[in-house]
Simulated assay, not measured.
Amino acid sequence: MKRLNLFPILFTLILLLLVSNLAAALIDAEAAKIPYQVNNSDRIVIGTVSKIDTYSSYTIYTVKVKEWLYNPIPAETIKIRSKIGTNLTVEDEVEFAQNESALLMLNDGNLDELLFRVPLGIKYPVSDRDAVIEELKAQGKWQEENQTENKTSETGMKENTGTTGEQEESSNQTQKSNTTPFMSPVCMLAVMLGVIIYVRRKN
């Protein structure tokens, strides 16, 4: 019986794997840049972490607002949810230290609870403020009223500093993280080797 030459197949599969990983790395690098983040953020804020509440599958960071740079809301503090907890770690999720200050691009989570997410877990130093403002101007998003440093209203959205974490903790006890990690190169290689062994035995 004619034997199948597996080298071209294996080489092609490895090449495809390397190309896909390289493409993913390029996309991640582009997504981390200020222009991309400004274009894809619901709000932009500068603040300082004043409280950290860690649960089994997530962490809630309370952030004291210093300045809104884009799409402000009347709140002196906000909360940021990260899918990193005592029993769970997820890549591309943000982590903060107590009293850490940062410039943050936010995606809306639950506005009633002033709860937000940080896309790709990326935080910027406060020194990037001018660069972000320049990009906001370039994208036509900058308005002088965007700057609301220490001018937040106490009568708008109420500040929910108490029970958000506890309520989410009880609802999350019964479910695992629904994020499926991307298949690693090692797993992909194992799958390819399994396919090759199967084909060789069949022939």
Rank of each mutant, 00 (worst) to 15 (best):
L10V: 05
T12W: 09
L13K: 08
I14L: 15
L15Q: 09
V19I: 15
S20Y: 09
S20W: 09
A23E: 14
A29Q: 12
A31P: 03
A31Q: 11
A32Q: 13
K33S: 09
N39D: 15
N39Y: 05
V45S: 12
G47M: 07
T48E: 15
K51H: 09
T59M: 01
Y61Q: 02
V63C: 02
K64L: 15
E67L: 13
I73N: 03
I73M: 07
I73T: 08
E76D: 13
E76L: 10
S82L: 01
K83F: 14
L88S: 08
V90D: 07
E91G: 04
A97Y: 07
A102F: 00
L103P: 00
M105V: 04
L106M: 02
D108H: 00
D112M: 08
E113S: 10
L114E: 09
L115K: 03
V118Q: 03
P119V: 03
P119N: 03
L120T: 08
S127R: 05
S127V: 06
D128P: 01
R129Y: 04
V132N: 03
V132Y: 03
E134R: 05
E135A: 00
L136C: 02
W142A: 04
E144N: 11
T148V: 11
T148C: 14
E149W: 09
N150M: 14
E154H: 13
E154D: 10
E154I: 10
E154M: 15
G156F: 12
M157Y: 14
K158C: 12
N160I: 14
T163V: 15
T164K: 10
G165W: 09
E166P: 06
Q167D: 14
E168C: 07
E169P: 07
Q173F: 08
K176G: 13
T180A: 07
F182H: 11
V186C: 04
L189R: 05
L189I: 10
L193C: 13
R201M: 11
N203Q: 14
